[in-house]
Design a protein around this nucleic acid. Structure first.
Length: 310
DNA sequence: GACGGTGAGCTTTGTCGATT
DNA sequence: AATCGACAAAGCTCACCGTC
């Protein structure tokens, strides 16, 4: 029988069973008979109209609906624990908010820091930052395990209708190299002819623009490696055997310390940064504040860009 | 490898007490 | 009286282990 209301007692039992890994362990923890938990779990499944566990012989394996319910239960009962903590230990204290942020693997670490730095010291706010591939981040967002993620590649909205790309801004991209390449500055970009270069991979949004720039300039450098990680590109270029195409923010420290130098700035070459949020849900006010803070920093870059990329 | 004993995990059934 | 949540007991299935 399906109901419009939820029996939170049943939900709690399910949550403990999932946490403990089985009915026997959960029964021990709750000091109940195993049969009681088995029956209550069955009632919950019937009321929800979904099996929450797949019975595999003597083991319970969580199903997809089970995972979804577990995520909600986790939020509900974590909030309950938090409420008790606040009431018992911090009278009058404010609730701590945890924002779950995803970052596309390979994105500049400095950029991530710049993104969060203004909010890191804020009372009652904590970040849980996870890196991953684009499909992984989209899946985590769809399953409510992330509040939003940042990426330099937009999600194809015809493939995933549940997400929304917001252009946050653009970051200048340049060719950087060690001191010994400084002589190439004068006749840039012609001086890149035959010069050793490390590039972002073809999947990168910057790569296509840079290839176009080379094509228009008629210059053919010697491409030594293609790397999909900004941090890795930075390490390669620091090794001194070649230059690299990088967002300036990714090597800001090295440029300040003069261990790397800007060899040239291909005109108009910028990396676009997107914030990907769930389409149907209003972002948390704090998320909106963070996004608008970052976007305002790069406001000038935004003027020429569409509101949503597809 | 086949067989049987044992234990573990889960379900079903019947029953009872508290609450509405 | 109906419903809910709890219990005990019995049963089912399977993994593991020792023996032949």
């Amino acid at each position: 029988m399906q109901y419009d209301w939820l029996n939170y007692n049943h939900l709690y039992y399910f949550w403990v069973i999932a946490n403990e890994g089985g009915i026997v362990a959960a029964a021990r923890k709750l000091r109940l008979a195993e049969s009681t938990l088995s029956a209550q779990l069955r009632y919950l499944e019937e009321s929800l109209g979904h099996s929450l566990f797949e019975r595999q012989h003597r083991r319970l394996k969580m199903t997809e609906p089970g995972r979804l319910v577990f995520d909600y239960a986790e939020t509900i009962f974590s909030a309950g624990r938090e409420m008790l903590d606040v009431l018992r230990h911090r009278p009058g204290g404010k609730r701590q908010i945890v924002l779950r942020l995803g970052v596309l693997a390979g994105l500049s670490k400095n950029l991530q820091l710049e993104f969060l730095a203004p909010f890191l010291g804020r009372e009652g706010l904590r970040f849980a930052v996870r890196q991953g591939s684009l499909p992984y981040l989209v899946s985590e967002l769809a399953n409510h395990r992330l509040d939003f993620f940042i990426s330099d590649i937009p999600v194809e909205t015809n493939k995933s209708r549940d997400v929304f790309n917001r252009v946050l801004g653009t970051i200048p991209v340049c060719v950087v190299g060690a001191k010994k390449f400084l002589g190439l500055r004068r006749k840039f970009p012609d001086s890149l002819q035959g010069a050793p270069l490390y590039l972002p991979t073809l999947e990168s949004s910057v790569r296509a623009d840079f290839d176009r720039f080379l094509g228009e300039s008629g210059v053919k450098p010697e491409i030594r490696a293609e790397l999909d990680d900004i941090a890795l590109l930075r390490v390669f270029v620091l090794h001194g055997q070649g230059m690299a195409v990088l967002p300036e923010i990714g090597v800001r420290g090295e440029l300040q310390r003069k261990t790397l130098f800007v060899i040239g700035r291909p005109p108009g070459l910028r990396e676009t940064i997107y914030a990907v949020t769930p389409r149907r849900m209003r972002p948390h006010p704090l998320v909106a504040e963070i996004l608008s803070h970052f976007a305002s920093r790069y406001r000038d870059s935004l003027k020429a860009l569409p509101e949503e990329a597809s």
